[in-house]
């Protein structure tokens, strides 16, 4: 019987990876995840055969679980390991891969197994291209982001063991954790999103985008420079390869040129609209509908018409 693993920080992400793995292949599926007993039972109902609960102490980095995981992988020899592509998850996956001398597909999509090889797609060159890679290694690791797979329906008749695992201390000690203060941004679940870019010459002009977002019932998002360089919006609101990937029904890009790194994050939007004064801007080729014009003129008209 083959063995598969899911490793994730949260139960929600683990549930998606379990759903994805269950569609991919049969085997004994162990989920290593930060959960309490109730959540662990739910993951079993959702398709895991065994849940190993991870609960690192206050001074332990989550990544310290990699040491016992390496030992366990040597005896259990999982053929496929999906790791939730969170920031900690990505680091743990790479350390695990090098320790086991296994290939790791980062941010894998469209995972499949054919003729004994695991194949997957991933975006490269800042979103300019999709690279399809494959491997016949005995253990294959992949990181998978939230939203790639869906959780299965719960089957409450399923049962399975719930264990715990102790991290093995390394030489890194956590001395403090400072949680971000609220301002909960829910771009991932938003149906409509208005994205603002460097076409906004003045911070005060953002009011035009806010008015549009309010009229549409949309969330506000932005390109990287607006968050990282101008700091006009929190970083959780920037879209793209190094920011958020979203899948709204409607994305309106205002004053955004449409560089590959940005478009990476809106590829799964149902409809993309661009408002840009330059008719040759790349976004025109990447949008369903474009209005060529000055945002200061177009936005009030659009908001007024809604």
């Amino acid at each position: 019987m083959s063995t598969q693993w899911v490793i994730a920080e949260t139960a929600a992400l683990a549930a998606e990876l379990i759903g994805g793995l269950r569609d991919l292949e049969d085997g004994v599926l162990t989920a290593f995840v930060g959960v309490d007993a109730t959540e662990a039972k739910t993951l079993i109902a959702l398709g895991a055969d065994r849940v190993v609960a991870l609960a690192p102490g206050n001074s332990t980095p989550w990544e310290d679980y990699v040491f016992p995981l390496v030992d366990r992988a040597r005896t259990e020899a999982p053929d496929l390991v999906l790791v939730g592509a969170t920031r900690r998850g990505r680091g743990l996956a790479a350390f695990l891969a090098a320790s086991l001398d296994a290939p790791l597909v980062s941010d894998a999509k469209a995972l499949s197994r054919r003729e004994g090889r695991i194949q997957a797609d991933r975006m490269v060159l800042g979103g300019l291209a999709v690279k399809t890679v494959s491997t016949d290694a005995a253990t294959v690791i992949a990181t998978v982001a939230a939203g790639v797979y869906a959780a299965r329906a719960a089957d409450l008749r399923r049962s399975g063991p719930i264990e715990t695992l102790e991290p093995v201390a390394g030489r890194v000690r956590v001395t403090g954790r400072r949680l971000k203060d609220g301002g909960d941004v829910n771009l991932a679940g938003a149906k409509r999103v208005v994205g603002v870019g460097r076409g906004f010459a003045d911070k005060a002009d953002l009011a035009l985008a806010e008015a549009l977002a309010t009229a549409l019932g949309a969330e506000l998002a932005c390109s990287r420079p607006i968050a990282e360089f101008f700091k006009w919006m929190p970083e959780e609101r920037y879209i793209g390869i190094s920011g958020q990937a979203i899948k709204p029904d409607l994305y309106i890009a205002v004053g955004i040129s449409g560089q590959a790194q940005h478009v990476y994050g809106i590829r799964d939007a149902k409809v993309i609209v661009s408002i840009n004064k330059d008719e040759t801007a790349p976004i025109g080729q990447k949008a369903d509908y474009s209005i060529v014009g000055d945002l200061k003129e177009v936005l009030p008209v659009l908001t007024g018409a809604l």
Binding site: P61, T86, R87, R88, R173, V174, G176, R177, R178, K180
Partner: peptide, 12 residues
């Protein structure tokens, strides 16, 4: 810099 905030660490 992690999803939920900042984690301070000491590395020996």
């Amino acid at each position: 810099k992690l999803e939920e905030g900042v984690e301070d660490v000491e590395i020996a």
